[in-house]
Design a protein around this nucleic acid. Structure first.
Lengths: 263, 263
DNA sequence: CGATTCCTTGAGGCATCTCAAGGCAAGTGG
DNA sequence: CCACTTGCCTTGAGATGCCTCAAGGAATCG
């Protein structure tokens, strides 16, 4: 699935086209990708910005790019140069374990940022792989950084986004540290549900882009346990499930399965 | 142990003295606390800064403060105003679970920052409690933010510190998601060992400031399991343990207990 | 010196893992 | 178009690692 051994990959621009304004597959794209007119602006980087700050963000030049299902956007160890914003589709972020297995550390949907972990050491600390055909914006960090120097509001937005990532991981630690299988899966589904809703999709019925094994890795359980827990929820009439298609029929009940532990 | 209900506490300056340059207990402190001359400058906020940037950081005015064992520096839900740097002693960061238990999300030692998670929403997302008598610097975020606007290097340092926190949590997720009890405790001890070494203390012999229950919460296991795993390591002659005092006698062996899984 | 807190250890239970088998859907090559 | 492969999911049965419950020891404190 990976196109290069994580440690061997050194070409920083491997997947990123140098020519702005065109997709990697050659199909035409807007000459200028602007944040201010993007339909994701309330979820993504520009979130919270208005007026001059938002206009200033339009000074940011970046490439849009398609990443096909199964392809990696970047690998663990790649040089950090870009922050990526998901335009469409879903990604997983993973760490590699010594024994060849992978640990999924997150799933990213439209409007969400990837790659912030690369800032610490200048190299990406995780890999990002598309779970379906996707489109992303590759934002040069150096350029974003320059721009942030001209606007404290923009700088604040970036800091806040990083902080949000920290908070997100806190709650995942809580999940991994103190919940049982049902609570974990309930928490996961409710989180997906919320994020779907925020993107204008149904909160109660959606298609999961990730496999049972990937959900399991993310939630710290085996794929068989994920499957059994789905079946258990179905039997409790909390949801209907057919492979990757999920319909939540009792949101309150699912909430309760999760709420038992969490504040 | 908590001096106020997490949600009820609203006074942002609750624990922070307004008069700079004096400790909370009235004992004299340097009139001006400067980063450039701090013995922790290579571990803490100034890490990586030199010359004019380091000098600029000295423009930052902040209070030093003692927090006694068991006292909270801030509570989950408190208004976010300061970033805190540990000058001496150890803290734990915790999240509150609905059932009254707590989840430990991290331990902070001298030179490490706390409170970055509060940026996301303007309220602290976790609580910080001293595990021994401690001293901290309370850095007003607004002020730091202003200063960062004048120096892209300083701004970069802050971003990098936040990124480091994200990376740290990634590895903890890996630990919680895919390791057994021995691997978890080995990883924990090796991490403490490294951090002690970085602070000029022995890497092989140290005093743990946290209880078995706190270690367990952090590592996602019960205190009895922590205790049993310590005993197992002692029996394998990897270390000697007497309550909170630990002496690692076979660092390589401990590495191996941990390395089995992790890259 | 009793109360309290923390740690250790044992015994038994249970949630999750492991191993295994089979079904279904999509892709592939004859 | 069909046989075959492959990937993913589900379910069962048994194993096991960690949890739960319980008791006792050691250190600390008022």
């Amino acid at each position: 699935m990976q196109t290069a051994a994580p440690q061997a990959s050194v070409a920083p621009l491997h997947f990123v086209p140098r020519h702005e304004g065109a997709d990697i597959d050659g199909s035409p794209a807007p000459l200028k990708t602007q944040c201010s007119t993007c339909h994701l602006k309330d979820l993504c980087l520009p979130c919270g910005l208005t007026g001059t700050d938002l206009e200033r963000l339009d000074g940011l030049k970046f490439a849009r790019r398609r990443v096909k299902e199964g392809q990696a956007l970047y690998h663990e160890g790649d040089r950090f140069q870009f922050i990526y914003a998901v335009r469409s589709g879903t990604f997983k972020s993973t760490l590699n374990l010594k024994d060849g297995r992978e640990q999924v550390t997150g799933f990213q949907m439209a409007g969400e940022l990837m790659g912030l972990d690369g800032l610490a050491s200048g190299k990406h600390a995780s890999s990002a792989v598309a779970l379906e055909d996707t489109e992303i914006c590759a934002i040069p960090y150096a350029h974003l950084s320059e721009l942030a120097a001209t606007s404290s509001d923009l700088q604040h937005v970036i800091s806040r986004l990083m902080s949000r990532e920290i908070v997100r991981e806190h709650s995942l630690m809580m999940l991994l540290g103190s919940m049982n299988a049902e609570e974990r899966l309930a928490a996961f589904l409710l989180n997906i549900s919320q994020r779907m809703k925020a993107r204008g999709y149904s909160a109660s019925e959606f298609h999961l882009r990730m496999s049972r094994a990937e959900i399991g890795s993310y939630l710290g359980m085996k794929l068989e346990t994920v499957s059994r827990t789905f079946s258990a929820f179905a039997q409790q009439r909390l949801l209907e499930v057919d492979k990757k298609h999920v319909r939540i029929t009792d949101l309150a009940g699912l909430q309760q399965a999760f709420d038992l532990r969490v504040q």
